[in-house]
Design a protein around this nucleic acid. Structure first.
Lengths: 240, 240
DNA sequence: CGCGAAATTGACTCTTCTCAAGAGGGGTGG
DNA sequence: CCACCCCTCTTGAGAAGAGTCAATTTCGCG
């Protein structure tokens, strides 16, 4: 059995009743930010949380999806498959990111956890009720949808026009902006929660090419401390 | 002066007062489909039409955009530039398609007319009023945004994983589904309103490679009647 | 009919892919 | 606690697909 073909429910713990929104790390970055006290009470009633273990699926390409998911902790890989098994990684989700903006009969992509993760989920049938009370919610979904679309267009430019080296640099920069942290000397430490194969499949490169390019960038001094789970961009190479 | 750096207003005729919505070809495919008679009257008051001549810009990457545009007639090329002048075509718009879903300070891409074209435009400040009366409008914007996002993901798969030949076949098929017409023998005639360079820039190929690939496909009999402005997919090669 | 832009074709180069072998690292069990 | 094993990543050598530069042909338009 292929590791791709895992049941959606394996590794997905039973939904938790939270009562934890008060301390939610992504509250304010999520649709919740638009809610007044009354609407928020509604959300707390209809929302639930779910743990997703590493390598388990939150959504599967082609299968129905009824919920909007918000990543509370951890990270996910979004991917699409060609009939012959070639896989394209179309994006990564980190804290505060959404998936499943609209209810669909066939999800356009799969979402798999890169590490043990935690999501909030809002069934769309309830989301509609929430949106009726809080019109800002739909605006936020539109805005987020546009942001995702623009990210996808940047990805298209990367794949269509950039060289291997440019792709790798762009990728490190992109991830660095999302989950990187600057150390005391101004170097940017960029965690890479995904394996090399995922990065290669995101960049449209073979993993050997990715590996060679990382080595070349390290030898040029444009990145340092290249390890399995992170790289560092030296202070003098960090872009604004 | 580069042909890219055209003023947005050159070639954009003064807005017309329409009173033509009754006979609008794309009514029913557009946001208008959600409107009741009262809301529709509102739309007719706040909406206007604009002609855009071939090669003139409807939107320019990096410049503010205040309107939602709906293509009524003609077609557009969406593109993004890299700093060094490399251009990636991110999509094409045909009758009924949208651009500028959200008001932005800096448009993420440029939109240029492939032929003399006609658009409706809805300033976002009025759109907000319309949406207040017709809640379906925002749902439609969300849905359309998702559709665009999914199209972008298909484009990402094309650029990241497909060979030159697969890209060209996918492109012809894609355009064929949107604006192709089947002749009496079941052959699909696919118009190509854009020049080869635009197709190449969409597919992430050099135009010489595109040209060679088209020739090879013609010699294989997988396409016929390859001309400047159209190709034909023989009935036995038309996919469902 | 002829001009000029667009498209095709040709010869050669180079980046990236492919296939293969080797090194590194993390986790488990003895 | 150390050793071993497996999985991931890196490195190497050769092949192939697409890119580059240049010449030629075709087509649309005046």
């Amino acid at each position: 059995m292929s590791t791709q073909a895992q049941n959606k429910d394996q590794g997905c713990h039973a939904p938790d009743r939270p009562a934890t929104c008060d301390v939610c790390e992504v509250r304010g970055r999520s649709i919740c930010a638009d809610l007044g006290p009354r609407e928020f009470a509604h959300v707390e009633k209809t929302m639930a949380r779910r743990h997703v273990s590493r390598n388990k699926s939150l959504m599967i390409e082609g299968e129905p999806n009824e919920s909007l998911y918000v990543v509370v902790a951890g990270s996910f890989r979004l991917s699409k498959m060609l009939e012959d098994g070639r896989r394209q990684v179309t994006g990564f989700l980190f804290k505060g990111d959404f998936a499943g903006v609209r209810s669909t009969d066939a999800s356009a992509y799969s979402a798999e956890a890169l590490e043990d993760s935690l999501v909030c989920f809002f069934p769309h049938r309830y989301l509609e009720e929430i949106a009726a009370d809080a019109p800002g919610v739909k605006d936020r979904l539109i805005a987020r949808g546009q942001t995702e679309y623009h990210k996808a267009q940047d990805h298209i430019v990367l794949l269509g026009k950039k060289t291997a080296e440019e792709r790798v640099i762009s990728f490190i920069d992109l991830i660095g902006r999302q989950i990187g942290a600057d150390d005391k000397d101004g170097n940017r430490v960029v965690p890479l929660p995904m394996p090399r194969q995922d990065i290669a499949d995101y960049l449209g490169l073979r993993l050997e090419t990715l590996s060679r390019t990382l080595t070349a960038l390290r030898e040029d001094g444009r990145i340092t401390d290249v390890s399995r789970h992170s790289v560092t961009i030296p202070a003098d190479c960090v872009s604004a």
